[in-house]
């Protein structure tokens, strides 16, 4: 039924997919240096997954990943995000404290005042939060598209469950 699109589109989307994913991860990872961040990169990767969905059909896609797994992934991202915020409460003083800024090992360096050098090892807790949110957004947005596409493609014409339960 839903067999996806022509061979050309399938091939091109397969070739472009890793490219989109790595680019989305690049945007997520460089959220504190260049335009981007968790949401933007997540949206890019989710769009890439949506491309696979439209090229190969939702039945193929649901064979690769199910919406329950996506839901769990999303929960993981959300829990990671809120745990990072709670760690601010534990190591710092308040909720959402940026407790990593100022240390020397992990994302702790501080660029000089008004410096314009892009140093990856900065930003405190921001890169970690970017990844948590990125995971969440990827899983969430793709889950929306996947669920809607799969559910509507399995509807038959004129099919409707009876009104009485």
């Amino acid at each position: 039924m839903s067999m996806g699109m022509s061979k050309i589109v399938k091939t091109v989307s397969s070739v472009v997919f890793p490219f989109i994913v790595i680019y989305g991860l690049y945007i997520i990872a460089h959220g504190h240096l260049t335009p981007g961040g968790g949401f933007q990169g997540g949206a890019v990767v989710a769009s890439g997954c949506a491309m696979l969905l439209v090229a190969h059909g939702s039945i193929w896609t649901i064979g690769k990943i199910r919406e329950k797994q996506l839901s769990i992934l999303e929960s993981t991202g959300a829990v990671a995000f809120i745990l990072l915020a709670l760690l601010g409460l534990v190591f710092g003083t308040v909720f959402f404290k940026n407790f990593l800024v100022g240390n020397k090992f992990l994302f702790g360096e501080i660029p000089g005042y008004l410096s314009r050098v892009a140093n990856f090892n900065t930003g405190g807790v921001l890169p970690l939060m970017n990844f948590a949110v990125g995971l969440k957004v990827i899983a969430g947005l793709f889950a929306i598209v996947l669920v809607m596409a799969y559910a509507t493609s399995t509807f038959k014409k004129g099919e409707m469950e009876d009104g009485k339960r």
């Binding site: 945007i27 335009p35 981007g36 961040g37 949401f39 933007q40 997540g42 949206a43 890019v44 989710a46 769009s47 949506a50 439209v54 947005l141 929306i144 598209v145 809607m148 596409a149 509507t152």
Partner: peptide, 23 residues
């Protein structure tokens, strides 16, 4: 606002269209 432009690109132009078409 390049940040917002990327978000609008990913969300507005791609995913919004996608779910509208599906609907």
């Amino acid at each position: 606002a390049p940040d917002v432009a990327i978000a609008e690109a990913g969300v507005g132009a791609c995913l919004t269209t996608a779910i509208l078409i599906i609907a």
